[in-house]
């Protein structure tokens, strides 16, 4: 499988990237780590006419913790998240989730921003940012704006990013309360059939691959807030979800898994 012919520009600043996007419009695509984009290009399911490679924008990589906020550059690799001692202390859920993305080789190249912008509901990291109540930072021709994770994922592989915008980083609150990620798949390297994520002692519960976008399991969250046990709360995990059916699971099985995995995640996170 061989990509269609494509143009390529490498930029070393966000401004240059935005300028390139402005120049090439809809036909341009940001190339971050490429771990999701290049397979799509090989199948010619994606055939942008111009790639804007942002790997050279050094200021987009890095993790910093200031006060109650963890800021992470969009080009920070999964591997960097996984191995960051600072992140392990400030937000262990995110560090852990990064460590179960794909396989080590994918984690060396894949980036947090790329994963979020790709907006795949079966991906691990989008749900983590959602569970953590994170904010995504986007830059565009009109300057920079912050988008709540809850507003960011708008559809299957669709996000709130405009065609002239790029993701530059995220902010998540420092979160050391009980957490868990229960990823269920048939092979370790595969996407989650369903995943259940619990952050901050149940304040945030999110689901992977339970619909067109990563989802907050709001029924579970409110049940917990109302004093429900993990078992009671997990029973509502599939409420309002419309999961797809594929080789590995139909919608009904996914809903069942969402309940089981949410229950396990809650208990793993320390809830009774």
């Amino acid at each position: 499988m061989i990509p269609a012919p494509v143009g390529y520009i490498r930029v070393d600043s966000t401004e240059a990237a935005l300028a390139a996007l402005g120049e090439h419009g809809d036909e341009a695509k940001i190339l971050a780590g490429g771990q999701s984009l290049i397979p799509l290009m090989r199948f010619r399911l994606a055939a942008p006419s111009m790639l804007v490679d942002i790997a050279g924008i050094t200021e987009l990589s890095g993790i910093s913790v200031v006060g109650d906020t963890v800021s992470i550059g969009a080009m920070t690799t999964h591997s960097a998240l996984e191995h960051s001692g600072e992140l392990a202390e400030a937000c262990p859920l995110l560090a852990h989730v990064a460590s179960v993305v794909g396989d080590p080789a994918i984690r060396h190249r894949g980036t947090l921003g790329g994963s979020l912008a790709h907006a795949d509901p079966a991906s691990d990291l989008p749900a983590a940012v959602l569970a953590l109540g994170g904010t995504l930072v986007a830059s565009g021709s009109n300057g920079s704006r912050e988008i709540a994770a809850t507003e960011f994922f708008t559809g299957f592989l669709e996000s709130a990013l405009g065609a002239d915008e790029m993701l530059t980083g995220i902010k998540v609150p420092v979160s050391t309360g009980g957490w868990s990620y229960q990823k269920f798949n048939r092979r370790a390297q595969d996407w989650a059939i369903v995943g259940a994520m619990v952050a901050e002692g149940g304040a945030g519960v999110a689901l992977v691959n339970m619909g067109a976008t990563p989802l907050r399991a709001s029924a579970v969250e409110s049940a917990l807030a109302g004093g429900a046990s993990s078992v009671e709360a997990a029973a509502s995990a599939a409420e309002g979800t419309e999961p797809s059916s594929d080789n590995n699971g139909d919608a009904a099985y996914r809903k069942h898994l969402a309940q089981v995995l949410t229950g396990r995640a809650l208990r793993d996170a320390g809830m009774e």
């Binding site: 092979r187 370790a188 390297q189 595969d190």
Partner: peptide
Amino acid sequence: CRSTNLGDYLVPSAAE
């Protein structure tokens, strides 16, 4: 065929 690649046709790995 709905299992045309090694992401969908599940050849086991060392982890399984």
